[in-house]
Simulated assay, not measured.
Amino acid sequence: MTDARSRRGRGSLAVSFFVQGVTFALLVTRIPAIQDRYGISDALLPVFLAAVPVLAGVGSVLTGKLVRRVAPSVVLRWAQPVVLLALLALGAGERLWHVGVALGVFGLAVGALDASMNMLGVSLQRAYGRSIMLGFHAAYSLGGIVGASLAWVGAHGELALVVSYLPVVAVLLPVALVGSRWYVEGEPGRGGPVGRSGGVLVPLCLVLMFAYIGDSTVANWSAKYLADVLGGSEELATVPYNAYMVTTLLGRAVGDLAVRRFGAVAVVRGGAVLAAAGFAVVAGAPGAWAGVAGFTVLGLGLSVVVPQAFAAARSDAEVARLNVFNYVGFLVGSPLVGALGDAWSYRGAMLLPLVLVLVMLRYATAVGGERALYGGGHERPRTVDVG
């Protein structure tokens, strides 16, 4: 693999992460508008929210089997357009079954997309011999900021969902298709096509699951929490996820340097402490802007955890297995927070992810394997820097 080809592959994959960040943000920040458009009750909303990660987990498992015969780049090339078109269908539908079908297709395709994106990212990091994985996830965070900002414009202008989504999909779909021409398969993992046994991966799976429980709490409940609990407007309700993504971007932008300097374990433990502090602020917030501040701190803390968990994988099969716990976190976290909120209080429900991110301190050593800890004497020697 030539240096120029490596750079093109790295850039095109970053574009894919960016596009997915925009897409996902446009979905989660407009949940109140989607609920109103389709007349989804508060009791039924968690069911729809849970369906996406369930089907995404199925998509990830299928991708883990598919990449034994087809390159991850091929899966990613076709999964991303399907995700974008499913988002557009979600905005254009009118009946309840329309939203069900659109979210179903979105979930299956996003599982394949997330798994294949991270497979390519991990393999490129192996080829580079140094930590670059957080940079890809920084591109996702930048996309989230753009998507949340576009969602704010749609809410502020009281635009119909399809009017908000159509121009975005019209721009991003050709960008994704053109960028996919330069995807590059990096260095294969060790341990063969299967990798380590499932038991060895349990600590990594727990770290990823707890991180995504925290992330799903922000993605699925921050808008509703700010509007219903803290008294914010619909426009202000789009801000917490945007603020969360800004600090997530900042954390990931410097995260690769931090990993090389301090090691993956120290970085993940520091992130867990910051995330717990953010949830504490959210739970005790006296008003809407204090809640925004808490979600902002949360982004800085959780930003480093997920990329490092994926970076510790040794094969595509392990990435696919780990990716399932992305959706387990969403599946468990979002409905559980909603159920606790209904049965007790939404402030009290924020204590659940607070405790779980602190539990990550116990399992943080799992991210410190040979493949995760680049830098600090662990970076692979190389004669030519590929970017």
Rank of each mutant, 00 (worst) to 15 (best):
L358E: 04
L87M: 14
V319C: 11
A43F: 12
N118S: 04
G107Y: 00
A349I: 03
L27I: 03
A317S: 15
T365I: 00
R7Q: 12
L300Y: 03
L85M: 11
V175Q: 13
L361M: 07
D36M: 00
A264G: 11
Y183F: 15
E370M: 08
A223I: 02
G341T: 02
L66E: 06
V200A: 15
G255M: 05
R37Y: 07
L322C: 10
V268T: 11
A266R: 15
P381M: 03
G195N: 06
A280Y: 10
A288H: 07
S131R: 13
P72V: 00
L300E: 03
L257V: 05
L76I: 01
G189N: 03
A283R: 11
A283T: 06
Y374W: 09
P203H: 08
M1F: 04
M209N: 03
V324P: 11
V297C: 02
A285I: 01
G214D: 11
L84H: 04
W344A: 04
L250M: 14
F325C: 07
L208D: 10
A211T: 12
V246A: 14
G214M: 07
R181S: 10
A51H: 04
G232H: 05
M119D: 05
V305K: 07
V61P: 02
V101S: 04
V324Q: 08
W289H: 11
G375M: 07
L322G: 09
L336V: 12
A293G: 14
R30H: 01
G179H: 04
L90D: 03
V332C: 05
D215H: 13
A50S: 14
P286G: 00
K65H: 15
R252K: 09
E370S: 15
I40E: 06
A288N: 06
A339T: 09
P381Y: 02
V22K: 12
E187H: 10
L76K: 12
L172K: 13
R181V: 00
G232A: 14
G376T: 01
G111T: 03
V246Y: 09
R260K: 14
A138V: 00
L336D: 08
T247E: 08
